[in-house]
């Protein structure tokens, strides 16, 4: 029982950063119609910036408060980078109304981000610092659980609830949904579409940067992280049905938990969780017609 609970919590903690990144990607996709290949690059930027903050401003990560501030700073810097990317690169895409062009431009941006990260931070793996208070385990109902995993889950929960409140219960959120369902109509009604798009990029960049920063102390931060994370991110988005934040949440957590359960109970299949989930979803889409809309490629608005 305690193994199962520990494994579930570990799984949710794996899914947490994937959700943070995937939800931003979904927001951008539904508002812009562009799947941002470079979004994993924002995650990597967040991780690298956090590592730099931790080593250069060493006192920043000795206290929990300093640690959280470092994460927020990393998120804010990445949000700025994200807006710069939107202003320079993606603004051309929706002038040209070309789906493929957006994908190509974002892929080019990914190659550039990879090169820039390599130039600044080199190719060897780095590790982020975190206050020692956050490591170790805490007993909940007699089961020892990793504190850092719980932190990841708490952050993801805050992000999920915050996004839900923002998108479905504020005036700003209804504008986002309006732009995502019909850009031209929204503009005709007086919504400043450009401002909405930019703010969506801010949110997406912020979430991806925070995900990278909060993940940095637990993973080896190097360029190859970009490639592996791109795969998990896309898998979560495609399994979640493109353009649904709830779908992205369910898919990310499913992927994380599946990975963790496999690692615990079927070690020979560890690391294949993503592919198994994907295979099941493809088969379900082919053979269960009712599954089609909720599983893959439904599109639609948030």
């Amino acid at each position: 029982m305690s193994t199962l609970l520990g494994s579930l919590i570990a799984g949710l903690a794996i899914g947490a950063p994937i959700f943070l990144v995937a939800s931003g990607l979904v927001l951008v996709f539904s508002v812009m119609g562009v799947l941002n290949f470079a979004h994993a690059g924002f995650y990597l930027f967040g991780a690298f910036i956090f590592v730099t903050l931790g080593s250069d401003v060493a006192h920043g990560t000795t206290s929990v408060i300093g640690f959280l501030i470092a994460i927020l700073i990393a998120g804010a810097i990445v949000a700025c980078i994200s807006v710069a990317a939107e202003r320079i690169v993606f603004i051309r895409t929706y002038r040209r109304h070309d789906h493929l062009a957006g994908l190509m431009e974002s892929f080019a941006l990914l190659v550039l981000i990879q090169g820039v990260c390599e130039l600044i931070w080199g190719t060897s793996a780095l590790t982020g610092q975190a206050p020692s208070v956050l490591f170790g385990t805490v007993d909940i109902a007699g089961v020892p659980l990793s504190k850092y995993n719980l932190l990841l889950i708490i952050v993801a929960t805050i992000a999920a609830v915050g996004l839900w409140a923002l998108v479905f219960h504020t005036r700003f959120g209804s504008k986002i949904r309006a732009v995502s369902s019909d850009r031209g109509m929204a503009a005709a009604l007086g919504i400043r579409v450009g401002a909405i798009t930019t703010s969506v990029f801010v949110i997406g960049g912020l979430l991806a940067g925070i995900a990278g920063a909060i993940d940095a102390p637990t993973v080896a931060v190097d360029i190859s992280l970009l490639n592996t994370f791109t795969i998990s991110m896309f898998a979560a988005v495609i399994l979640g049905g493109f353009g649904s934040i709830l779908g992205a949440l369910v898919a990310s957590m499913t992927l994380g938990v599946l990975d963790s359960l496999l690692a615990t109970y079927v070690p020979s299949l560890a690391g294949y969780g993503l592919y198994i989930a994907f295979g099941v979803a493809i088969l379900a889409r082919m053979y269960l017609p009712g599954f089609r809309e909720i599983a893959i490629g439904g599109g639609g608005t948030l």
Binding site: L109, V111, G115
Partner: peptide, 9 residues
């Protein structure tokens, strides 16, 4: 890589 990426973009 940065130069290739920049040129490509």
């Amino acid at each position: 890589d940065a130069l290739v990426g920049g040129t490509f973009l």
